[in-house]
């Protein structure tokens, strides 16, 4: 019996690359991890301050938020963190 043949169906998304990226699940995941990272960074700044009256904002807070954003991007795009490298 001849092997079955399948015709490949090519369906292309007609939206622009940016729009496709924004609507992708990966973008939502990156956004979620970045928000959480930034939030954790700020919480560590606020509750990790030394003695005296705590301040709400300083350069250190911005630095922590950037570190949180960085880890958010790294973790949400890392294949191992997504369970895709075992």
């Amino acid at each position: 019996m001849d092997p079955m043949k399948f015709k490949r169906l090519n369906i292309k998304d007609e939206r622009s690359m940016v729009k496709r990226w924004i609507s992708s699940p990966l973008f939502k995941q990156v956004l979620m991890y970045c928000s959480l990272g930034a939030l954790i960074g700020y919480a560590l700044f606020y509750f990790g301050q030394g003695g005296g009256e705590p301040v709400l904002w300083s350069d250190k807070a911005a630095e922590n938020i950037f570190i949180g954003l960085g880890f958010g991007v790294f973790l949400s795009t890392s294949p191992c963190a997504g369970g895709r490298c075992s």
Binding site: L44, F45, G50, G51, I67, F71, A81
Partner: peptide, 24 residues
């Protein structure tokens, strides 16, 4: 309540990484 000078950058970075990994 002992620490006086606040947290260092590597403690902050590893704290963020740790909590994000737990949430992940």
């Amino acid at each position: 309540h002992q620490h006086i000078g606040g947290l260092s950058w590597w403690q902050i970075a590893s704290g963020i990484a740790m909590l994000l990994l737990i949430l992940n």
